[in-house]
Amino acid sequence: MTSAPAIGFEYRPSHWLSGVLLAVASLAALALWLGAISIMLKVVLSAVLALAVVRTLLRFSRSSIVAAGWSHHAGWSLRTVDGEDKRASLHAFRAAGEQVVWLHLVAAGLGPVSLLLAPDNSDADIRRRLRMRLALASQPKDKEPGHSAG
């Protein structure tokens, strides 16, 4: 896999995340209002929930990243809205079926960066190639073909 070409993609925040967040927050508010607590506590907790939702939506909708790339030799790089390229390292990733890949990267000067790749902001082929490469990269060395455990 060392000769595999680099993967690069433009990035914009996904609207799927906003939809999921609003659905979960709505269920939380419904549970809060159906609970047996005082009306004053319901109002206060609803306000806290609303503030948390707004803060999270703003955080994920204002990405300073416009593109990302990964090659076997150079690792991860992120392009910011200023046109700067920053080296990054993959901290963790999650793949949810064939539709979603969530990358957690750390870059000098940017800190932790989360990129959600979903059908509304990325190509299916990019997500497929990323899932395959991430799965191969996360395998222990003794699990690679041609290696024996003994």
Rank of each mutant, 00 (worst) to 15 (best):
G75T: 10
K141D: 14
H147R: 15
L90A: 07
A108M: 04
G146D: 05
I39W: 13
K42G: 00
V53N: 02
V44A: 04
V54F: 01
A6G: 12
H73F: 11
G150E: 06
D120A: 13
W33L: 13
L30W: 10
L34V: 05
L115A: 07
A36H: 10
G19C: 04
A50I: 10
L78E: 02
D123C: 09
I65Y: 02
V113T: 08
A108K: 13
D82R: 11
S89D: 09
L32R: 05
I7Y: 07
E84G: 02
R127W: 11
A137T: 04
A124P: 12
L34Y: 04
K143V: 05
D85P: 00
V113H: 02
A29D: 10
L51T: 00
H15V: 11
R59P: 00
L78K: 06
R79S: 12
P140E: 13
I65G: 12
H91G: 05
L41R: 03
L110M: 11
L51I: 01
P13H: 09
D125K: 08
D120W: 05
S77M: 03
N121G: 11
M40R: 09
T2Q: 14
F9E: 14
L21R: 07
L57N: 01
S61T: 06
A118H: 05
V66E: 09
L30N: 04
R59A: 09
R133P: 03
L30K: 02
L45R: 01
V106K: 07
R94T: 15
R79I: 03
V100R: 14
S14R: 05
F93A: 08
A47W: 02
R127P: 08
H91Y: 05
I126W: 11
G146K: 03
T80Y: 00
R87V: 02
D123P: 04
A95E: 11
W16E: 09
D120R: 06
P112K: 02
S122G: 02
L58V: 06
A107N: 04
A137N: 12
V100L: 15
S64T: 12
H15W: 14
E144V: 01
V66A: 07
A108H: 14
H72S: 13
A135S: 09
A68N: 01
H91A: 15
A92R: 11
A96E: 14
I37N: 00
V113R: 01
L41W: 03
L134T: 12
K141H: 09
M132P: 00
G97K: 12
H15Q: 14
G35I: 00
S46G: 14
L17D: 07
V24L: 15
V20E: 05
S89H: 09
F60H: 10
L27R: 08
R59M: 05
A4P: 03
V44M: 04
S61R: 13
H104G: 07
L103M: 10
S77Y: 04
R59K: 12
S61Y: 06
V44I: 13
A149I: 02
R87I: 03
S77G: 01
V81W: 02
D142E: 13
R62D: 10
S63M: 08
S114A: 13
L49E: 02
D125I: 12
R131N: 01
L90Q: 15
A107T: 01
I126D: 12
L27H: 08
A25W: 00
S122A: 14
